[in-house]
């Protein structure tokens, strides 16, 4: 589809839009794009610069009020073709970015970020407060964000690194990898993929990791006080450190480490579940990969 759009765009004469407008604190940027790219970076100025490459057949409209700056593109007949936005915003500006056949990237934001696309990747570095990233068919990647984090894909992987706050990550057909996480509340699920969590286990925290066809790898720091519930139907459980089972039923068992004030639920229907210490998971994964290559 992107190829088609690119071809169509090539039929029109390329045109550049480049506009800078002053904005007050608290103003939100809303960008919607049918196909192409939305790339947002930040600066220290109280202004928004909107640069866009597009066909001469398309028109970029910018609607600025005291609440928002709204950017969209329109073709003469229906949606625009292929528009590549390169937008620079104040660091704390809230962002609402959406597209259909659109890759979305944000670099350096310290504000709220909502980014949604259907066929394209979402890659965000930064973000604070509510950070919500969604794609149907595209990788979702987040790093260096804090706040309430919601990550969703359908047919691709989710990767989050260096995040602090409440985290929800959900995909259907892809891995979920959460590393360098500082969270007291994390929920990660997939149907066909592995889940890796390497981060804090805070006292009183709640952590839930669930997959159907895939392995779970979770790091538990040595000083963590956590009660762990493990459920698997066809998989195995292993731990890099000794554990004492406290309750065991068919397909499910529990054990407690230290004070047990945090709670971890681990569920994999067809996969293996492994607990290790922080830093060991990466080695494990590499060893698994090496084993597969040897086979």
């Amino acid at each position: 589809m992107l190829m088609t759009l690119a071809t169509l765009a090539a039929l029109g004469i390329a045109q550049q839009t480049d506009t800078t407008l002053p904005v007050r604190a608290g103003v939100r940027l809303e960008v919607s794009n049918f196909g192409g790219e939305i790339a947002v970076k930040t600066w220290s100025k109280s202004a928004v610069r909107i640069a866009a490459n597009h066909s001469s057949r398309d028109r970029i409209s910018i609607d600025a009020t005291e609440q928002y700056v709204r950017v969209k593109s329109e073709g003469r007949r229906g949606p625009s073709q292929l528009v590549e936005y390169d937008i620079t915003v104040p660091t704390s500006m809230a962002l609402a970015l959406s597209g259909v056949y659109t890759d979305i990237s944000v670099d350096g934001s310290q504000g709220e970020v909502t980014a949604e696309t259907v066929e394209g990747s979402v890659k965000v570095s930064g973000g604070a407060g509510n950070v919500s990233l969604k794609s149907v068919q595209g990788e979702v990647t987040l790093e260096k964000a804090r706040g309430r984090i919601s990550l969703s894909s359908v047919n691709e992987t989710i990767t989050a690194t260096g995040i602090s706050g409440d985290i929800s990550a959900e995909t259907v057909n892809g891995d979920v990898t959460l590393t360098q996480i500082e969270s007291a509340n994390t929920d990660a699920t997939t149907v066909n993929g592995d889940i890796t969590y390497d981060g804090t286990i805070k006292d009183g925290g709640r952590y839930r990791f669930s997959t159907h066809d895939g392995d779970l790898r979770v790091a538990v720091p040595e000083k963590a006080g956590v009660s762990v519930s493990v459920a698997t139907f066809n998989g195995d459980f292993s731990s890099c450190f000794p554990v004492q089972l406290s309750r065991k039923t068919k397909h499910r068992f529990d054990f407690t480490i230290g004070s047990g004030t945090a709670r971890i639920e681990l569920e994999s229907f067809n996969g293996d579940i492994r607990l290790c210490r922080p830093g060991q998971l990466k080695r494990d994964k590499h060893e698994d990969h090496d084993d597969q290559e040897e086979e």
Binding site: M1, Y101, V118, E119, V136, Q137, V154, N155, V172, N173, V191, N192
Partner: peptide, 16 residues
């Protein structure tokens, strides 16, 4: 919906 999107949705519905 685009045929590619339909394919992806149907594939993932199948997985579920």
């Amino acid at each position: 919906l685009d045929t590619a999107t339909v394919r992806v949705i149907e594939k993932n519905l199948g997985i579920i």
